[in-house]
Amino acid sequence: MREILNDLERWRKQGKRVALARVVDVEGSGPRLPGAAMAVNEAGEVAGSVSGGCVEGAVVTEALGLLEAHGEGRVVTFGYSDDDAFAVGLTCGGTIHLFVEELNW
């Protein structure tokens, strides 16, 4: 979260609602360690990353959905995606668990 602190503080100051996604667990080969974080504000602006670019698009969708629904925080899991076109997942063979929540604390 340290890397995206400036963005988080700026967005909060601007009064924008923000969703925060953090890697909480990694199984097998994964590009980022627990604690890797990305944030999406209600305008769709993005800061940080949680993988090597494999799942960020899906996280934005998840984050915006959560903000729109005023939803509770929840764990989202991304696993291995084989060669099936457009399936969201990690090509490296690992599984990552993200906790996505609104940054309202």
Partner: peptide, 18 residues
């Protein structure tokens, strides 16, 4: 948390995720 991070002091955050 932001204040502690900026001051480079050790801090940890525990969150119930399920």
């Amino acid at each position: 948390l932001a204040e502690e991070l900026r001051a480079e002091r050790p801090v940890a955050l525990a969150t119930v995720v399920s």
